[in-house]
């Protein structure tokens, strides 16, 4: 007859699955809300660098993700675009992932409309080209030959925003929102290291730890990791803003926190049962 602690240690994983599902569904359905405390770190570094850019700077924003990582990266795209456009920084956007183009376009158009910015003057979406790192290298020498037309098929030669950019070196900063390969590492290797342009990154929380070494070396100047990074940025952008637009990252954080706590609770329970069992076995010896 198995004791309680034994049963607890070998709990059917389907029970864990059910509890996790409930801990996400309930807070979302009930619309819980929790405040986000901000601590200095890669998110604030990223914010500070963008904040320090003068109006009129050129930023390349690359949407290197697809719908499967939207929950984490789309909120970042919104917060970053809002910050950049509010500061009158010009955005040239593109995508190393085919599905990134339309996701990026959704963000750019909606933020641009809400702030009254003008396509081709304040921002442009160049679209997607295959090639990853190779493509970046080619952009290093000439962007207009890589992207002769934008996403909608208009010639980039006629666009005021493209007057000042011929190659990657003409950008003041490159930001890649990246869900994997090609993404941030490709930008670091093929653009940052080669042409000495500051690279900022946004990534899924899972890949964030592997980018820390790049932060340490300065190859990456700031990093938004996962929904937490997005919520940090969203919070930072909203500081001092009247009637901030509704965010997408902050509400999800509540559900995430609850589920997160539930997992920690499971780990604690697992250890209690493990230690209790060990003690019992030790007693028999």
């Amino acid at each position: 007859m198995a004791t309680f602690t034994e049963k607890l240690g070998n709990i059917d994983r389907r029970i864990i699955f059910t509890v996790i599902a409930l801990s996400v569904v309930i807070p979302l359905a009930m619309r819980f809300n929790l405040p986000i405390p901000i601590t200095p770190g890669p998110s604030t570094d990223m914010f500070d660098v963008v904040e320090a850019l003068p109006a009129g700077s050129m930023v390349l924003l690359s949407f290197d993700y697809d719908p499967s990582t939207m929950p984490e990266l789309q909120p970042m795209a919104f917060a970053l675009t809002q910050h950049l456009m509010r500061k009158d920084i010009k955005i040239v956007s593109m995508a190393l992932w085919p599905m990134g183009v339309s996701l990026g376009n959704e963000v750019l158009t909606s933020v641009s409309d809400s702030l009254g910015r003008e396509e081709y003057v304040d921002w442009v979406n160049l679209g997607y080209k295959t090639g990853g790192g190779v493509l970046i290298v080619r952009m290093g020498s000439n962007i207009k030959s890589v992207f002769p037309e934008d996403y909608d098929g208009n010639s980039v030669d006629d666009m005021p925003i493209m007057d000042h950019v011929n190659k990657l070196g003409d950008f003041d900063m490159i930001i890649s929102l990246s869900a994997g390969d090609p993404g941030v590492p490709a930008w670091i290797m093929m653009a940052g290291d080669r042409y000495d342009i500051p690279i900022g990154g946004g990534c899924t929380a899972v890949s964030a730890p592997q980018f820390y070494p790049y932060l340490g070396t300065g190859q990456l100047i700031g990093l938004l990791g996962g929904l937490k990074g997005a919520a940090d940025y969203e919070t930072l952008v909203r500081i001092g803003m009247e009637n901030p637009p509704p965010g997408t990252a902050i509400p999800g954080m509540a559900a995430q926190s609850v589920a997160h706590l539930v997992i920690m609770l499971f780990i604690i329970l697992g250890n209690i049962s493990y230690l209790a069992e060990k003690k019992k076995k030790g007693g028999v010896k």
Binding site: G56, N142, D163, H164, N166, K167, G169, D170
Partner: peptide, 15 residues
Amino acid sequence: IGTILPVDGSRTDEE
């Protein structure tokens, strides 16, 4: 070959 903002700067002429 290009109009530039009146600040210190650099530019690379290509091709």
